[in-house]
């Protein structure tokens, strides 16, 4: 069942509650609320029109070009979010996200869903969006944790070096902690699936008229793909970061 535009206006009116709460608490988030939802409306409307066009075309190369646009956007968004070592981050983030995409997407499309044609936009684009969005957020968290873990305790790192550790051995405990911090919330959210939360994709599909059993299969697939993507991206990102962050004597390079 479609939602009418009047219905959407009523949905928008729900924002009255956060606005009233912000006013009473003198919470300076009202400006941000209007900016955020304003952007959301504009971006999603444009995206709706664009996807509507893309889906009617069924042209694989157009889908592929759009996926490249998506990943480029993710790379620059992520680089903007990270506040350290920015001069070395671009190739690291790009390589990590691109490699994950190149491994996961063909796997899902060719081996799991098998649509005809393989790069049908209505499958490739929403799934890629979910994998990419989660990988991007998780990489941001993992890299922030890794960098702050190193900066907070250089003494530990130098001690390991001075006892004969190589770069990998000296950085491994911090690497491990960063991966743990980034992956544990993902695993907990997987575990709560179906009991605590009915996830967005599944809800969307059910509301769109799909059978719950089909929706569940898609949801399982997407959760597995997201977790695998997140893990791969974090791992590649930090490994590449290690190589750029330290010199040939394993000493940290200065932040420019």
């Amino acid at each position: 069942m479609d939602i009418s535009y009047i219905g959407l206006v009523f949905a928008l009116l729900l924002l009255i509650f956060p606005i009233l709460i912000f006013l009473q608490l003198k919470l300076k988030l009202i400006g941000q609320l209007f900016t955020s939802f304003g952007r959301m409306i504009v971006q999603l409307s444009l995206m709706g029109v664009w996807l509507e066009f893309l889906f009617t075309q069924e042209i694989s190369w157009l889908t592929l070009i759009w996926m490249v646009v998506m990943v480029s956007n993710a790379v620059f968004t992520l680089r903007g979010r990270l506040k350290f070592q920015r001069h070395i981050l671009l190739p690291i983030i790009a390589t990590a996200l691109a490699t994950t995409s190149l491994v996961l997407m063909p796997w899902i499309l060719i081996m799991v869903i098998r649509p005809q044609p393989i790069f049908s936009p209505e499958f490739a684009i929403p799934i890629y969006g979910m994998v990419l969005g989660n990988s991007m957020n998780s990489l941001a968290l993992a890299m922030e944790r890794f960098e702050s873990g190193m900066s907070d305790n250089w003494r530990a790192y130098y001690t390991r070096l001075s006892l004969g550790a190589n770069l990998w051995e000296a950085a491994l405990p911090t690497f491990r902690k960063a991966m743990h911090a980034s992956l544990l919330p993902q695993l907990l959210s997987v575990a709560s699936m179906g009991v605590v939360s009915l996830p967005g994709m599944m809800t969307g599909q059910i509301l769109g008229g799909a059978s719950p059993l089909v929706a569940i299969k898609y949801q399982m697939m997407i959760m597995i793909a997201i977790f695998s993507g997140v893990c791969l991206t974090d791992y590649l990102g930090i490994r590449l970061y290690l190589r750029k962050r330290f010199d040939i004597y394993y000493l940290p390079k200065e932040d420019k």
């Binding site: 305790n153 003494r155 530990a156 130098y158 070096l161 001075s162 006892l163 004969g164 004597y249 394993y250």
Partner: peptide
């Protein structure tokens, strides 16, 4: 570097 540092080892003022 790791081979050298396993032969020439340093102990620091504040041990970790």
């Amino acid at each position: 570097p790791h081979d050298l540092r396993s032969q020439i080892c340093q102990v620091m003022q504040e041990p970790y």
